[in-house]
């Protein structure tokens, strides 16, 4: 980062290094299961157009509440059944994956964009900056999360942008706290002291000397947080405050069919399995990464 000339000869491309760290995960069975689950859904999301047998919003009145495995009049099979409007549940789940895997990482990324610099500044500079930022973070965190989401989104309206903003707003303080804690620890290292004695600027110290050494715990946190944001988006959809219909959204699918769920349970059960498996993937991946990082 500081001097390309000396760093480049040995430095592998980022992708290669990422692959290597995944290869390290081989030692953690749990981590590999998590990785496989996440990879599965990512591939599903990317190739949704090829994988889904029907268009996600295509309705077939003859197939309303069709049970899993039903065969339509035109010969197509509704593998996971159909919903109250006769839409193929499998196709909706496949397209829903694309939607959730777009917004959840995006919202997490935005939250990091806000939380990381603030955490670095508070942890490194301390003093009044720390006092003010920590107080703000504590206020936001003192709200029960979902109460916050429900009030904010019901007031400003349920749209993709508002959801991303709300998630950023509610997650950034948590990221702030983690980064601040790591920074408070790392700032006492002698290499930081060495950088100070040679008159480096505070932002150089925070970004070049401190942040790269905090990446281990932060990568684990990213996985956990993406998983949690997926739950959040799902819950909002379930409460009717999620991404706007008619495009499929796993939480929304359950909300739409909730009243009939006890009579035709497949409408709700399969989206539930989808979201749970994706979140489980991220959580197991985080656990595996933590296990591997503790090892060396």
């Amino acid at each position: 980062m500081t001097d390309q000339a000396l760093d480049t000869p040995r430095r592998e491309p980022a992708i290669l290094r990422a692959l290597k760290s995944i290869a390290l995960m081989r030692e953690s069975v749990v981590g590999m299961i998590g990785f496989a689950l996440v990879l599965f859904w990512v591939l599903v999301a990317i190739f949704a157009d090829f994988l889904a047998p029907y268009l996600p919003n295509a309705q077939d009145v003859t197939m309303i509440y069709a049970a899993p495995g039903s065969v339509a009049s035109n010969g197509g099979t509704y593998l996971l059944g159909a919903d109250d409007l006769g839409r193929d549940i499998l196709s909706r789940i496949i397209h829903g994956a694309r939607r959730v895997l777009t917004y959840a990482p995006l919202a997490t990324f935005c939250a990091y964009l806000v939380g990381v610099p603030m955490g670095l500044a508070a942890g490194y500079r301390r003093g009044w900056i720390d006092d003010v930022l920590s107080f703000i973070a504590n206020i936001i965190l003192s709200f029960p999360v979902l109460v916050l989401y429900v009030i904010v989104i019901s007031t400003f309206g349920a749209s993709a942008v508002n959801i991303v903003i709300a998630v950023t707003f509610a997650s950034a303080p948590g990221i702030f706290r983690i980064v601040r804690g790591l920074t408070l620890d790392l700032r006492t290292r002698e290499y930081v002291f060495a950088a100070e004695t040679r008159g480096e600027s505070p932002w150089y110290i925070m970004l070049v000397e401190i942040l790269p050494n905090a990446r281990g715990p932060l990568i684990v946190d990213v996985c956990l947080r993406v998983g949690y944001v997926i739950i959040t988006i799902g819950v909002l959809g379930f409460l009717g405050l999620g991404l706007p219909p008619p495009d499929p959204d796993w939480g929304g699918m359950i909300n739409e069919t909730r009243s009939m769920a006890m009579i035709f349970p497949w409408m709700a059960v399969f989206p539930c399995i989808a979201i749970s498996s994706l979140v489980l993937g991220f959580n197991l991946l985080a656990d595996g990464l933590r296990e591997v990082s503790l090892r060396d």
């Binding site: 998983g227 359950i254 349970p265 709700a268 059960v269 979201i275 979140v279 489980l280």
Partner: peptide, 17 residues
């Protein structure tokens, strides 16, 4: 880990089922 991965609405659906 598994139980915390299942959101409340999902476990509500599955348990009710």
């Amino acid at each position: 880990i598994v139980t915390t991965s299942v959101p409340e609405f999902a476990s509500a659906v599955l348990i009710s089922a």
